[in-house]
Amino acid sequence: MSKWSVSIQAEGDRPVELSEVVALADAVAPLGGIASGVGAMAYGGQIVIEAENADIAVEAAMEAFAAAVETANLPAWPMTRAEVIGEDEFEAGEYGLDE
Score class of each variant (00 low, 15 high):
residue 1 M to N: 06
residue 1 M to L: 10
residue 1 M to P: 12
residue 7 S to D: 09
residue 9 Q to V: 04
residue 10 A to N: 01
residue 12 G to F: 01
residue 12 G to A: 05
residue 16 V to N: 05
residue 17 E to H: 06
residue 18 L to R: 10
residue 18 L to C: 04
residue 19 S to I: 02
residue 20 E to I: 02
residue 23 A to V: 05
residue 24 L to N: 02
residue 24 L to P: 06
residue 25 A to W: 08
residue 25 A to D: 15
residue 25 A to L: 08
residue 26 D to R: 05
residue 26 D to E: 11
residue 28 V to Q: 02
residue 29 A to D: 08
residue 29 A to E: 13
residue 31 L to Q: 07
residue 33 G to I: 05
residue 34 I to M: 09
residue 35 A to G: 04
residue 35 A to P: 06
residue 35 A to N: 04
residue 36 S to L: 09
residue 37 G to C: 05
residue 38 V to S: 09
residue 38 V to Y: 03
residue 42 A to E: 08
residue 47 I to C: 06
residue 47 I to E: 07
residue 47 I to G: 01
residue 51 A to V: 01
residue 53 N to Y: 08
residue 53 N to V: 01
residue 57 A to P: 04
residue 58 V to E: 15
residue 61 A to Y: 02
residue 64 A to P: 06
residue 65 F to A: 09
residue 65 F to R: 04
residue 66 A to D: 12
residue 67 A to F: 07
residue 69 V to I: 15
residue 70 E to H: 05
residue 73 N to A: 13
residue 78 P to E: 14
residue 78 P to L: 12
residue 80 T to I: 11
residue 81 R to M: 13
residue 86 G to N: 10
residue 89 E to S: 15
residue 94 E to W: 11
residue 95 Y to K: 03
residue 97 L to E: 11
residue 98 D to T: 09
residue 98 D to L: 13
